[in-house]
């Protein structure tokens, strides 16, 4: 492919994602889609657009790249903005460059801390420990509530409260002594049920797939934002599953809040405020995390959201409508 074609591909991938995401978010709100599973379905449609549909359109319909199509048939052609130039470069080129930089920034914002955390010295995990008895019992209770086999438990004897699931082929739950000491019996069962719900849905594998999608579309800010929204939905799905299975949504909300206060949010963000850019970014990120936890707790305090009827029909209609609309956007 020539440089111009790559630029057209990048421009369309970014623009199609933005339009698809905006349309999908508008539909989610107007149709009142509240169930996290259904929201994820709609958002995956927007996420799949730049990954599958845009390349398919490029391969199957080369006529869309013709200048006659752009000038006479398209309802929007990004290259028309190249009629306006700044410093000798068309505005469409500037727009792609700015969007690409934003997308890369959003990608690195998550990638760099993740890589730092992986390379940092973490306390060793112990496969079995006598003092992990309470955690093992809670894990067994949570697994029974979810109707699944309990995965192996990895014990962290020192350090801050830690509770997460990991592993794609050999899934396990990692928990620290501090987490067990922090949470009461019901909160611990609820929190472990939440992690088991992630394993039940193969979320660790899904998170790798989403990270791959983000890396592939690192220039696309829409993809970066959509993946974050899907990750939040995954947390909500695990909350709902755990809350329903354990029949104690309040305990799960309480455990969630305790763990958040003890590990993340503003405390962690304020520690990174030495460099100007990091400090400027830390506050809004911390606020967004606070808001996210607040929403999750609020959702757990209420009744489980009812599914919207005719969800598949709506999804298919939205996909068909978007396909028709975006065919004429080049």
């Amino acid at each position: 492919m020539t440089g111009q074609r790559w630029m057209d591909f990048a421009g369309q991938a970014i623009f199609h994602t933005l339009v698809a995401a905006l349309v999908i978010e508008a539909l989610i709100r107007l149709w009142g889609v509240r169930q996290p599973e259904q929201r994820t379905g709609f958002r995956l449609l927007a996420l799949g657009w730049p990954l599958l549909v845009v390349p398919a359109l490029f391969l199957a319909f080369p006529v869309r790249e013709a200048e006659s199509f752009r000038d006479a048939r398209a309802i929007f052609a990004g290259r028309h903005w190249d009629d306006l130039a700044f410093l000798g470069v068309g505005l469409y080129g500037w727009w792609i460059a700015c969007m690409g930089a934003t997308g890369l920034g959003l990608f690195l914002l998550d990638l760099v801390p993740w890589m730092r955390a992986r390379s940092a010295q973490s306390p060793p995990w112990i496969a079995a420990a006598p003092e992990a008895r309470a955690a093992e019992e809670a894990l067994a209770r949570a697994a029974a509530a979810l109707g699944m086999e309990a995965p192996p438990l990895a014990w962290v004897a020192s350090g801050p409260p830690v509770l997460f699931c990991t592993g794609t082929r050999q899934p396990m739950v990692v928990i620290s002594r501090a987490a067990v000491e922090l949470l009461d019996r019901d909160e611990l069962t609820g929190a472990l049920a939440h992690e088991l719900a992630h394993l039940e849905r193969h979320d660790p594998t899904l998170s790798w797939a989403l990270m791959g999608a983000r890396a592939l579309m690192c220039f696309n800010p829409g993809v970066q934002v959509l993946v974050r929204a899907i990750a939040r939905d995954a947390e909500r799905i695990a909350d709902e599953r755990a809350g329903t299975a354990c029949r104690d949504r309040l305990a799960l909300a309480s455990g969630l809040l305790k763990l958040y206060r003890a590990t993340g949010g503003r405390v962690a963000a304020s520690g990174t405020g030495r460099r100007p850019l990091t400090a400027a970014l830390a506050e809004p990120i911390a606020r967004a995390r606070d808001h996210d936890i607040e929403l999750r707790c609020r959702a757990l305090l209420g009744e489980p959201p009812a599914p919207v009827p005719l969800a598949r029909m709506r999804l298919a209609a939205a996909a068909a409508g978007l396909g028709f609309l975006l065919f004429f956007v080049v």
Partner: peptide, 23 residues
């Protein structure tokens, strides 16, 4: 649901045509 979808897509198309004619 289909009526809402048509309105949203129509609005999007209208906005895109407007954006295209701006240059």
């Amino acid at each position: 649901a289909l009526w809402t979808l048509a309105l949203v897509l129509g609005g999007a198309a209208f906005a895109l045509v407007g954006l295209d004619s701006m240059p």
